[in-house]
Design a protein around this nucleic acid. Structure first.
Lengths: 201, 201
DNA sequence: CATATCGTATGACGATCGTCATAATCCAAG
DNA sequence: CTTGGATTATGACGATCGTCATACGATATG
């Protein structure tokens, strides 16, 4: 609602930042809601309301919903990349590999939500326009590099690991009413990745 | 509900079959469109039109859209299971494993569409009601058994393989504007599965 | 205090959504 | 041909969708 106005010369900068902040808030809200309910499952109305605004002002920030979808994808994958950058620099490669994988597959311990935005947004992105796919692709490339670095793996191995974790997250979330099966899926993927990763590393 | 006195069995059967056939056509159309455009991306209107009908008659066949979604999931995974049941009974386990995996990851050579409905429907299912998730879960269990049998793998291995293929399909489809990356993803998953599968089998 | 500017709110538009009551059409049986 | 039940089409409802023109209110400057 109200913000700290600096009395020094950075007033103009603050004004500029206000709209930027609002815009960023909309993007982050959208990123969260898109993952929860799907891109077609959330309207501009709900995104703005959840951001503490009203729907009409949306087009002062974005050309259309598609542009927001692209930015939300960038934001979601950016946050995921940042979350795992600099995970455990002190551990051995094998230990980092295992820790990374376990945390990734576990998801958010509080909400129980999948930790992998790529898994939940994937099919939605595949059905949307070029700009959205480009934003998603750039995020995926960053994620691959982060995984390779943090898990101490070759690029090809990192890609396979990423795909496997996405698939496991995807499957586990979709059979969510069968907790035993969901756990079995995550466990099977954990074991396979560990086996291959250790065997190769 | 309604019982027909069976003085002529074929007639009753014909009457019964007509509505059943229409219903089945709707389900298969929905299954295809849901995978292409997402569950929230297709309306009852389009599904009926694409089935050669008009939208109003929909509720003579289904209680609501949610019920159709559940049936479409069952249908999609059922077709996928059937497609790979009895793939290559003559080959060795290793050869079947490789062939199965290659065909699965390749997708439909004509349309280029992913061969795995589970991958495209997953997140959509995760966001819908209990009935839809139950239908999807049942289909996933069948698929796991089919994979274990056709690829000559243990259950745990089959689950990990299924998850990896879903993830690879998911990722490759979503970075579709970057053909090189998509190919790299499929290739990395192929190699990892082959390595683990052969090592264990 | 007056004013111009920027950010947001109000309210409306055409389109499409899921749903349903009801009318029109088909087709086997008499 | 007539009839009656099964099947599909018509048309409409309230709600919500994405989008936009426009008016309001706060702020920085003179």
């Amino acid at each position: 609602m109200d913000f700290q106005s600096a009395d020094d010369g950075s007033v103009v900068s603050n004004l500029k930042t206000r709209k930027e902040e609002t815009r960023q808030r909309i993007v982050e809200t959208a990123s969260r809601l898109f993952q929860q309910k799907g891109v077609d499952g959330v309207g501009v109305d709900e995104i703005m309301r959840e951001s503490g605004l009203t729907h009409g002002g949306f087009y002062a920030h974005f050309a259309n919903k598609e542009a927001l979808v692209a930015e939300a994808c960038t934001c979601a994958l950016q946050q995921a990349s940042a979350k795992w950058s600099g995970l455990g620099q002190l551990l051995s490669d094998d230990a980092r590999f295992e820790q990374f994988m376990n945390e990734y597959l576990a998801g958010d311990p509080r909400t129980g939500a999948p930790a992998c935005p790529a898994a939940m947004l994937g099919p939605d992105v595949a059905r949307r326009g070029e700009a959205v796919q480009a934003a998603y692709t750039a995020g995926v490339k960053r994620m691959i590099e982060v995984i390779a670095k943090e898990a101490g793996a070759e690029r090809e191995e990192a890609i396979a690991m990423f795909a496997a974790m996405i698939g496991a997250t995807n499957l586990a979330a979709s059979v969510g009413d069968d907790k035993a099966l969901a756990a079995e899926i995550l466990q099977a993927t954990r074991r396979q990745l560990l086996q291959c990763g250790v065997a190769e590393g």
